[in-house]
Write a protein that binds this DNA or RNA. Structure first.
Lengths: 343, 343
DNA sequence: CTGAAAGCGCTTACAG
DNA sequence: CTGAAAGCGCTTACAG
């Protein structure tokens, strides 16, 4: 655990400079010397020390990844895609889970800066983050994934849910739904806001009312989806369809609906967001707005690599898909207004 | 991005030694000097360089985590728990996804050693891994999670599925099942082997036959679960119950059963392994053997920290729970042998 | 092609 | 309490 270039040099009878050159594969070193060095390294069991190299070269080959909630399958898949792509470009990734807390995000940001990551990939948590602004000011290459911070000029890679949401509403209306509720994200969340606004716009386009009581605010966690669904179901005139804007809240809603003995798709329609593998395995399979998660991850890395290389990078807005399955009912909706396309 | 201790020292009018002491909070530095240093650091926007510090102290405050498949929810949750616990102890984690490939595991192992991680947490992939043995020989503190390598004397933190599997078989038998199939893990997998053996033993204890055709080998991935279920269902005399030994294969089996229009719990019973959040949301909710995943993660980190500190650590074997829900049917099993406890 | 030497940014004995 | 100096393990101009 302690053999250094100096040891190898001594053993091979050459200078440390030659050792370095030979081992790094650089040219400008004779074949015989190279062979001797390699043999010596082998014999001594030499293990390069990247921290020394990093100090000297100021390259760490590491990028930082800060995710707000690794347990959320969406972010899990995202992290996985990012890890994969990063390695493709020769970067290791230091992973931190901000857990949706600004203080944790800031602490990790400091930590990553101190470790001299070459770039930063993050899904910023909501709220003011001094460390984030500091990092940006310092000029560390960085790109946001999935969430933008409007006040910051940082490239962002995310998916635009609007067209798909509009299609979803059309789908629901086609099935005879008029009283459609939404379980939205936190008010301050740009993503949540965008989805809610898109939903509102689509409802208006179909001349459908969206009373206050049908708009519920959650926090992207399962429990808030459950609570929101409960409130919705307790209404004097409950909605015939519920649209939740992320996977976890969708799950919560499904759970609450089930708990009450209601059947999804017939008693109440459910549409979700994101598309973890088991959505299609639910009974009935869930209709949902799907984001190109792993594409986002790959693209985010590519964008970051570009930022590291050129000092600047462009944002990318991907498309979402509406995946129609059976959870919005395909036939008899109780209050069907004759518009149903079902049998 | 380039202010160093030397700059701070100059600005504060003291030596770099004092700067280092003041900033690290060490004692042996006067209050006035400390205050001046802190002010100077602040004024200059000093950002400590951990790679230099690491080189000097030979401490990197980093541990490596190698997971065989981050997309698998079991490992996702495990990684999340590990990341959390590691930070609690002041360690950052470098995450690598071996994707069940020895070569990738070995490459990442080299990389982590070069980066001088202070410890290694990994779920070893199957197959010979020269780098793993090399690392062990070198004495890098390490602990295995979830999977042991019988030939290596490395502490392992995992859960013992045997008692829960025995209870599961009892549960199935109580429900009238006799023809019970198993979708096992790869033959070389100790974990898979343990679960299969436990299942065999339990079957024998109930004097139940387990013909070859009812034992199917998968690879812990969803697709293999699907294929295994298909083969099982195609049998002249298909099983009345299927037990899959991980979450992904369980999902695959569920999907195949559904695809054929069969109802889980009534047409065919399904029992799974692991307990991702949506198992309880399936229709019917899935009966499963649940591992204490996040406990495993935390304990693995504690064990590693101990290994780093003392140079040795003990293995830990946790218990699994049998979570009984409705997927094994609670009533009428077609071929019920009169043993059914249902109504 | 090869080597002597400096230096990356810290921390830590060692003196005083 | 404070500083001068060495050194962690590399790489890279700079000479030759």
């Amino acid at each position: 655990m302690a053999v250094t270039v100096a040891d190898v040099a001594r053993y091979a009878g050459v200078s440390t400079a030659s050792v370095s050159r030979a081992l790094s594969g650089a040219d400008g070193v004779g074949e015989t010397v190279r062979a001797r060095v390699i043999a010596a390294a082998q014999a001594l069991g030499y293990q390069p020390n990247d921290v020394a190299r990093s100090l000297r070269t100021t390259r760490t080959q590491t990028v930082g990844l800060i995710i707000p909630d690794v347990v959320n399958p969406f972010f899990g898949e995202l992290a996985s895609a990012i890890e994969e792509a990063a390695h493709q470009y020769g970067y290791s990734v230091i992973l931190c889970n901000a857990n949706e807390q600004t203080e944790r995000q800031d602490r990790y940001l400091e930590l990553m800066l101190a470790r001299r990551v070459e770039g930063l990939l993050l899904t910023p948590v909501l709220g003011e983050s001094p460390a984030l602004h500091a990092a940006a000011r310092q000029g560390v290459p960085m790109v946001f994934v999935d969430r933008a911070v409007p006040s910051m000029e940082v490239a962002v890679v995310r998916a635009d849910g609007r067209p798909a949401i509009s299609k979803l509403v059309e789908h629901l209306v086609g099935l005879g739904h008029e009283r459609i509720a939404v379980i939205a994200g936190p008010r301050q969340s740009p993503t949540g806001h965008e989805r809610l606004t898109a939903f509102r716009t689509a409802m208006r386009a179909h001349s459908l009312r969206l009373p206050r009581e049908l708009v519920r605010v959650g926090d992207f966690q399962m429990d808030s989806g459950r609570r929101a669904a409960a409130q919705l179901l307790d209404l004097d005139e409950p909605p015939t369809a519920v649209f939740a804007v992320d996977d976890l809240m969708t799950l919560g809603a499904v759970q609450e609906i089930r708990r009450r003995g209601l059947r999804i798709g017939t008693d109440v329609a459910v549409a979700g967001f994101d598309d973890p593998p088991w959505f299609q395995l639910m009974e009935p399979p869930l209709t949902t707005v799907s984001q190109p998660v792993s594409r986002m991850g790959t693209l985010a890395v590519e964008t970051l690599v570009e930022a590291i290389g050129t000092g600047s990078a462009r944002s990318h807005l991907l498309d979402c898909d509406l995946v129609i399955r059976d959870s919005c009912g395909e036939a008899a909706i109780p209050r069907g207004a004759g518009r149903s396309s079902g049998t």
